[in-house]
């Protein structure tokens, strides 16, 4: 009979640490994918993932089993990513005047003919990455969860531990920050 997450968790809490490896193997790709949304360098991603699992092990006793383990783990992951963003704010001062050639070309194409600039281009992905890196930690988290991952305000509130009202306020501010960043691109490039 196949064992459930609850069985593995119960075994770990009884002292069978080796059973924790089963949980790690099962959810490691998901945690890595989430961490890669917020960190670019491999060593930073690995640090985040490691931190998530160490916290998960230490806090496993507080998991009450009312929701799936995956939800509990994803909350922990998102909060660890947010902590990472807050502690790495020094990287935010990038200038849009230093856009790469493909990024410049993509923007030129967009200005000349918006529909001709493909969303699947690497340059577009680099540009959004640059733009997200400029945002404050809370704004980046909200834009990622709300706009890119298409989650609801309620889901974001559960993941982050913020109230629904706070999520709405932060989403409003985050969109304003995005527009400011985009205006900066336009100004640096065309004025």
């Amino acid at each position: 009979m196949e064992q459930t997450d609850a069985d593995h968790i119960a075994a770990v809490l009884k002292g069978d640490t080796a059973r924790f490896e089963v949980l790690i193997q099962k959810y490691l790709p998901r945690v890595f994918a989430t961490a890669r949304r917020y960190a670019r360098r491999d060593d930073e991603v690995e640090d985040i993932v490691q931190e998530v699992w160490l916290k998960a092990f230490q806090k496993l006793g507080s998991f009450r089993g009312e929701a799936p383990f995956e939800h509990w783990l994803m909350r922990l992951t998102v909060r660890t990513c947010y902590d990472f963003l807050r502690s790495h704010r020094r990287n935010r001062e990038t200038t849009f005047s230093q856009l790469t050639e493909p990024e410049n070309d993509w923007l030129d194409r967009f200005v000349a003919q918006p529909e001709a600039a493909s969303e699947n281009a690497d340059a577009a992905r680099q540009l959004i990455e640059r733009l997200l890196a400029e945002l404050s930690p809370a704004a980046r988290l909200v834009i990622t969860l709300l706009e890119i991952e298409d989650r609801s305000v309620k889901e974001i509130a559960e993941l982050t531990g913020w109230s629904v009202t706070l999520v709405k306020v932060r989403a409003f501010r985050a969109r304003a920050e995005m527009r400011k960043g985009l205006a900066k691109i336009a100004k640096d490039k065309y004025l």
Partner: peptide
């Protein structure tokens, strides 16, 4: 532009 870039990230 914002819509395009968000779509790029989603893709």
């Amino acid at each position: 532009l914002e819509r395009k870039l968000i779509a790029a990230a989603r893709a």
